[in-house]
């Protein structure tokens, strides 16, 4: 498998705080890669640097061999990366289907079209996407009144609108009921397989992660502390320590400062 996203030495400092330091990993084509870690580990910061919402202090992000470090999100999107957010950011003044039509209009570079009626454009494609995420009956509802779980599914449909080759999903199932979580992740896994695309996602629900991820990267305090297959991560002593305690204690015995060195 060739790599589609290559991250090297990604670092972000907020004033004195190293939110992400020297993170390197790759996403292979067709892979469903999970980025996990406790709260404050730097997952969202990492995501924001991948798509350009944040400029990294140091490091490099390459997409299909092309350096995209520091490009604005809209350009990264045009190259074929779709993204969903931890807190949804749909357009409440539009209907559900119009939210997807908006992304389709942008994809077909029709934003400066003054003539057509927007709500008639790409409607069929938009409905198809809604069917894909299982909510075609909600097409004409106002987006503002959707339940949170439905918003998450809508966001996924929007992220798929420009047929991306890589999906970035920041906590796609946050705020959903357990049954819904499993269903949404199953859906994502199916889409990744059917369309032969790749996905990188962060997640707190370990059931979801272990059930669907092909590979897992664990972040703690801005650093990668482990990466490997589901089985490897499950049995990693340090990962267990991070999740079950000890992660916030200073390791004074060997004299190494807190979080400064990575442990193999």
């Amino acid at each position: 498998m060739t790599s589609i996203l290559q991250v090297t030495g990604l670092t972000k400092h907020f004033d004195g705080l190293a939110a992400v330091s020297d993170v390197s990993f790759e996403v292979k084509r067709g892979e469903l890669l999970a980025l996990i870690g406790p709260n404050g580990a730097g997952k969202t910061t990492c995501f924001n640097m991948l798509m350009g919402q944040l400029k990294p202090t140091a490091g490099k992000v390459e997409f299909n061999g092309r350096d995209i470090t520091g490009l604005p999100p809209r350009k990264v999107w045009r190259l074929g990366i779709g993204r969903t957010f931890q807190i949804t950011g749909t357009y409440p003044s539009m209907t559900v289907v119009e939210n997807i039509q908006m992304a389709l209009l942008s994809h077909h570079r029709r934003l400066f079209d003054f003539k057509s009626y927007a709500h008639l454009e790409y409607k069929k494609e938009a409905i198809n996407l809604l069917e894909l995420v299982g909510m075609p009956e909600q097409a004409e509802r106002a987006c503002a009144i959707l339940a949170y779980g439905d918003l998450k599914r809508l966001e996924l449909a929007i992220a798929l609108a420009h047929e991306p080759s890589l999906l970035l999903m920041d906590e796609p199932t946050a705020g959903m009921a357990p049954r819904e979580r499993i269903a949404l992740m199953q859906l994502t896994a199916d889409i990744v397989e059917q369309r032969n695309i790749s996905a990188l996602f962060t997640e707190h629900d370990m059931d979801v992660v272990f059930a669907h991820a092909h590979r897992i990267i664990v972040l703690n305090r801005g650093e990668v502390i482990a990466s490997g297959s589901v089985e490897q991560i499950r049995n990693d002593a340090q990962v267990r320590e991070v999740y079950l305690g000890g992660g916030t204690l200073y390791q004074s015995a060997d004299g190494s400062a807190d979080g400064e060195h990575s442990h193999a």
């Binding site: 798509m51 919402q53 604005p72 999100p73 809209r74 999107w77 045009r78 993204r83 957010f85 950011g89 749909t90 357009y91 409440p92 003044s93 539009m94 119009e98 039509q101 908006m102 992304a103 209009l105 942008s106 994809h107 934003l111 927007a118 929007i158 609108a161 420009h162």
Partner: peptide, 18 residues
């Protein structure tokens, strides 16, 4: 629509090429 999208959620709009 793009104008309203920019108003409703600039982050989402920017993340979808607007």
């Amino acid at each position: 629509y793009a104008l309203r999208a920019s108003r409703d959620s600039a982050r989402q709009a920017e993340a979808t090429g607007i």
